[in-house]
Design a protein around this nucleic acid. Sequence first.
DNA 1: ACTTGACCTTGAGTGGGCTCCAGGTGGCAT
DNA 2: ATGCCACCTGGAGCCCACTCAAGGTCAAGT
Lengths: 111, 111
Amino acid sequence: MEETGFSLDTLRYYERIGLLESIGRNAAGQRRFTQKDVGWLGMVRCLRDTGMPIAEMIRFAEMTRAGDHTVRDRIALLEAHDRRVQEQVENLREKQVAIRNKIAYYHSVVD
Amino acid sequence: MEETGFSLDTLRYYERIGLLESIGRNAAGQRRFTQKDVGWLGMVRCLRDTGMPIAEMIRFAEMTRAGDHTVRDRIALLEAHDRRVQEQVENLREKQVAIRNKIAYYHSVVD
DNA sequence: ACTTGACCTTGAGTGGGCTCCAGGTGGCAT
DNA sequence: ATGCCACCTGGAGCCCACTCAAGGTCAAGT
């Protein structure tokens, strides 16, 4: 298990579905993650943790492999995602206020 | 479909699993949502949207039905949830910075 | 020499949260 | 009075993102 925070099973799964480009093996057939792989996994972690669906990450992975002519599309994808993240944050903050009001109300009942 | 933002199927599902206390019916057997039901659904929406698992919402629902002696436990549950929400927000913000850095990097490549 | 254990593969199973289906009923517009 | 639509029920099905199982290989320690 690499210290990207993914389990080995998850890494195998990601490789199978094409989210990771075929990871190199050593003589015994075991996966050897390069610095590049680890970097990409950092990106994957970042996108996953902000709620990007796997299907979309695969599209992003494919663009990344396809070369520099996809950079504009990658920007568009990330900017759209950034807007969704922004909405998530705002929505959470809003709901958090409601939760805190409820807590305050309960406190007023119990004290 | 009520304007709590839940689909009718979802409302039926919630009733089945005990997240909603048996909703009243009219003569024809159709659900009639009271103001109280709608209020509770607002709470449910708030908790769902902030990532509380359904199982935990059911525990909360049961406490709410059980009466005033559960208020302290409800406070504890909501405070724990509030801390998780806070972590979510902080985590999202952190990851958002990384995404924006990536976008900026791509811009520097493409321009 | 042999056990242990971490890895390998393919494929099936799981859990959460809905969502849809079949078959049926009731009210209302034409 | 007949078609239509929105609702009802119980139960099955679906999607996502993993996670586990079975059977096998290899390297290192005792």
